[in-house]
Simulated assay, not measured.
Amino acid sequence: MRCAIAVDVGATNLRLATFTGKELKDRVSFKLQGSVNPLNYIIGYLEKFSKSCNYIGIASAGPMNLKKATVTLINYNNLTINYLDSLKGYGKVYITNDCIAGILAEKKFGEAKWAENAVYLTFSSGIGAGVMVDGHILIGKDGNAHEVGHIVLNYEDSIECGCGKTGHWEAFCGGKSMPKFFQKTTGKIVNSPEEIFKLYYDGNQKAAEFIEKCMNINAAGLASIINVYDPEVIVLSGSVYLHNEELFLKKLPQLTKKYVMNRMPAIKTATLREDAVIVGAGILAFLNGKLP
Rank of each mutant, 00 (worst) to 15 (best):
S125M: 15
M132Y: 09
K165L: 14
N117F: 11
C173V: 13
E111F: 11
T96N: 12
I58L: 08
L79A: 07
N65D: 14
W169L: 15
G62V: 04
L138W: 14
G140P: 08
V148Q: 06
F123A: 05
K184P: 03
F181G: 01
A145I: 08
Q183G: 01
V119C: 03
K67V: 05
V152I: 15
N154G: 02
K108V: 00
C161M: 10
V148E: 04
Y76T: 09
A59F: 00
N77P: 08
A118R: 02
Y90V: 05
Y120H: 03
K107I: 01
D85M: 08
N77I: 12
L84P: 00
K188E: 13
E160F: 11
I100V: 15
S86L: 01
E106P: 00
G110E: 02
A118K: 10
L104W: 00
Y155A: 09
T96L: 09
N144K: 05
G89S: 04
C163V: 09
E156A: 11
G140R: 12
G175P: 02
A171C: 08
M178K: 02
I103F: 00
K113N: 06
K88V: 04
I58A: 10
G175I: 01
L73D: 02
I103R: 00
N144T: 04
D85S: 14
A69G: 03
E156F: 10
T70P: 03
I139F: 07
C53Q: 11
G174F: 13
D134T: 05
D142V: 10
C163M: 14
Y155S: 14
N154P: 10
E170W: 15
Q183D: 05
S158K: 15
V119H: 03
W114D: 13
G128M: 05
G135Q: 15
I159C: 06
N75S: 13
W169A: 02
N77F: 15
I95H: 05
V190S: 00
N82M: 02
L138D: 08
T122Y: 02
K180C: 09
K67Y: 11
V190F: 01
K108P: 00
G162C: 11
V71H: 13
A118V: 04
L66K: 15
K188Y: 09
D85V: 04
N117R: 12
P63D: 06
A129T: 12
N54T: 09
M64A: 07
W114L: 12
G187N: 08
E156W: 06
D157F: 10
L153V: 15
K184C: 01
Y155N: 09
G135N: 14
I151M: 14
N75W: 04
N97C: 03
M178E: 02
D134Y: 14
D85Q: 13
L66Q: 12
D134I: 10
